[in-house]
Amino acid sequence: MGPISSLVIMPEWLDLLIAFMIGTGFGFALEQAGFSSSRKLAGMFYGYDTTVIKVFFTAAIVALAGSQLLSYLGLINLNQVFVNEYYVTSAIAGGIIMGAGFIMGGFCPGTGISAMSIGKIDAMVYIAGGLTGAFLFAETYPLIRNIAEANYKGPVKVNEVFGISPGLFTLILIAAAAVMFWLAEAAEKRFARPDITNEL
């Protein structure tokens, strides 16, 4: 729990307990939002149900705005937040594979585990496939290493690339989210599938 544990000294078990509680809350929220239904998730790509983008994007901007405010007030240390290292080629390739897998399987890794926990067989097969893919990636890594590590940019942040303050970037992202939600609502009307959405 980097941002909190660097400001408050806490024993490791408490650190892990907080992580466990947050994970439990995340799984609970996913399930109650209906994300264990593959038809709801696939609806994001077909346009008839855009709940996924609304929920995840809202969560992202709430976390972004909240963490920055807490950081300004000195309550958390944002320098402890892990920033993913950016490899352009593997981000594009991985994104394509992930997107194709998402629409074909109707799950992403997190929602797949959430669905698996309520006994859905398709989610169990999906997760087994995901673990197989991860294993194969690890075993074949020496062969694909050059592609995986191509175009390395380091742990970059978007606001640093554009040379704007984190606060201004947050405002732009919130405005973009509002536009996207409006477009999502329009898409739901355009690509409505009452035969599916009435069952969800």
């Binding site: 400001l7 809202t58 901007i61 709430v62 705005a65 909240g66 920055q68 405010l69 950081s71 300004y72 000195g74 240390n77 944002l78 320098n79 942040k157 640093e160 303050s165 984190p166 606060g167 201004l168 947050t170 405002l171 992202l173 919130i174 405005a175 989210a177 509002a178």
Partner: peptide, 25 residues
């Protein structure tokens, strides 16, 4: 309500002198 809250938070943050660096605590 949520939109109003988030937009207000965004405006406040945009006006704050936030940096990537830390200050003393």
């Amino acid at each position: 309500k949520i939109s109003a809250l988030l937009l207000s938070a965004g405006i406040i943050l945009a006006l704050l002198p936030l940096t990537g660096n830390r200050s003393f605590s």
